[in-house]
Write a protein that binds this DNA or RNA. Structure first.
Length: 298
DNA sequence: AGGTTGACCTGGACGC
DNA sequence: TGCGTCCAGGTCAACC
């Protein structure tokens, strides 16, 4: 479902509502797919932790956790069976490192919803986090492409890639140097830029006037500068609009975004380009659909 | 080594 | 109404 602007909108809503709250208990569903860390490790890390901050890293939501009661955390830790831990996982030793992170990736259809305990548990709910304030944070994901994990390394969660809104134009241009892959695929590669997905890749290329199949290494300096500017503009505008609600995306407050009304090419196959009235084309590149205007993009 | 393809899942839209 | 087909905002492992 969500790309950077949608995840950012969800993050803002969550931060408003759960920052400072304490996790009292955690329920995890039977289906194992959504869990990237062992279930006992997730439970032990989350329970009794205070949510110090809610951040976004690419398309991931990162809950920064700290101990609410120092002794309670270490005793929770002791309850984790040795066998359930990775051998190379760092011990949370109760000294200066009393920090951990809960990482959520929403996949295509994942949602994080705030709910009252008495409200009906939706189909495809895979995790319920009960908070001291009496509310629940629920992870719902029909297609089960989303992932939950915890990180206790002192270095913290560190996927590769540049934040698209943090990269300067030189840094941005360097990412594509020597890459023979279509620029569309390069934009989707999270090891290069983290957070751009199919909608915003297509919309950015349209604004920059670049065809999605162009080889990344063949773009001129001018084109890279236009693309850098387009990516940042599109993402900023989409965040301001609360993201794109294409089928069922809603933010943490249950509100839809409205950037879908600003799409110039995505989902508009056969419709006229808003600039030149040519029919928008749809092709498949690396297994994903790509939309572009054959006249405005070269 | 780096790029492309299929697999992973469920559900909604559409055609017959 | 129902059944089949295609499509979907993402990411991996497996191939070339």
């Amino acid at each position: 479902m969500p790309e950077l602007p949608e995840v950012e909108s969800i993050r803002r809503g969550l931060a408003r509502r759960v920052r400072g709250d304490v996790i009292e208990s955690v329920w995890l569903g039977e289906k194992p797919e959504p869990l990237k860390s062992p279930a006992p490790e997730i439970v032990a890390t989350l329970e009794q932790a205070r949510i110090a901050a809610v951040r976004r890293v690419g398309k991931h939501i990162v809950f920064d956790l700290e101990s609410s009661q120092p002794s309670a955390i270490s005793s929770q830790q002791e309850q984790v069976p040795r066998s359930a831990r990775n051998d190379n996982s760092k011990r949370w030793d109760g000294h200066s490192q009393r920090k951990a992170q809960w990482i959520v990736h929403l996949g295509m259809t994942g949602r994080l919803v705030i709910a009252q305990p008495e409200s009906k548990v939706a189909r495809h709910t895979h995790a319920i986090v009960r908070l001291q304030s009496g509310r629940e944070l629920r992870f719902v994901d029909p297609r089960r492409f989303g992932r939950l994990s915890v990180v206790r390394d002192p270095g913290g969660f560190a996927p590769g890639g540049q934040e698209p809104l943090g990269a300067g134009v030189r840094q941005f241009a360097r990412l594509f140097r020597g890459r023979k892959t279509p620029i569309k695929s390069a934009l989707l590669n999270q090891k290069l830029l983290r957070g751009v997905g199919n909608i915003y890749a297509d919309e950015s290329l349209y604004r920059a006037g670049i065809r999605p199949r162009r080889r990344a290494s063949r773009l001129t300096g001018d084109e890279l500068a236009r693309l850098h500017r387009a990516v940042q503009q599109v993402l900023r505008e989409a965040i301001r609009a609360g993201g794109s609600s294409v089928s069922d995306y809603v933010n943490a407050d249950g509100d839809e975004g409205f950037f879908q009304f600003e799409h110039r090419v995505y989902g508009r196959e056969g419709e006229p380009c808003r600039e030149c009235r040519s029919a928008i084309k749809r092709v498949v590149i690396a297994g994903r659909s790509a939309h572009y205007c054959p006249k405005c993009q070269r």
